[in-house]
């Protein structure tokens, strides 16, 4: 795969992520998009990102797109380009739009678990701002998006 093809595949993957986020309600849409944007930009800006790292990066984000995309739309939102099957290497058990299974968390590396914890903290901080009680509302169950 040439560098140009690789760059195009990465941009197509990014497009599929932005497209999947467009179907999410706020604040998940904004949170997801800014997280993805930062991650992609960091990898693109780092000249030292190796081909193997790109492969893993792309593979993880493809799983993410499959996890958040509604089943009916999953085929059209697939990133295309070089498809990398890494089954057995990465944790299984991610349901569409659902919770991570115990098995999936169990199978993660320490780095992945740290990343998950970081994402959870960011999400909580973001959510705390987005769902701050207003005008005496208690900000409880009723305020959660579907």
């Amino acid at each position: 795969m040439s560098t140009a093809d690789g760059a195009r595949a990465i941009l197509r993957l990014y497009r599929s992520i932005v497209r999947a986020h467009a179907r999410l309600p706020e604040p998940m849409r904004a949170l997801g998009s800014s997280y993805a944007r930062d991650e992609f930009r960091r990898h693109i800006d780092a000249d030292t990102t190796t081909a193997a790292q790109w492969t893993e990066f792309a593979s993880q984000w493809r799983k993410y797109v499959r996890a958040i995309a509604p089943p009916a739309a999953s085929s059209s939102s697939d990133a295309g380009g070089a498809h990398v099957e890494m089954d057995g290497v990465y944790p299984r058990g991610v349901d569409a739009g659902g919770e991570l299974s115990e098995d999936a968390i169990e199978a993660m590396t320490d780095e992945q678990r740290a990343k998950l914890a970081e994402l959870r903290r960011e999400a909580m901080a973001f959510g705390a701002g987005a769902f701050a009680p207003r005008g005496g509302e208690d900000g409880g169950e009723g305020e959660r998006p579907p």
């Binding site: 497009r15 932005v18 693109i44």
Partner: peptide, 25 residues
């Protein structure tokens, strides 16, 4: 290049079309 992807997505929303990858590129 990432900004450009987002701008092209904004055109999709404005014009209610889905631009295929080959064209969007």
């Amino acid at each position: 290049s990432l900004d450009t992807v987002e701008v092209v997505m904004a055109f999709e929303e404005e014009f209610a079309v889905e631009i295929p990858d080959a064209e969007a590129d």
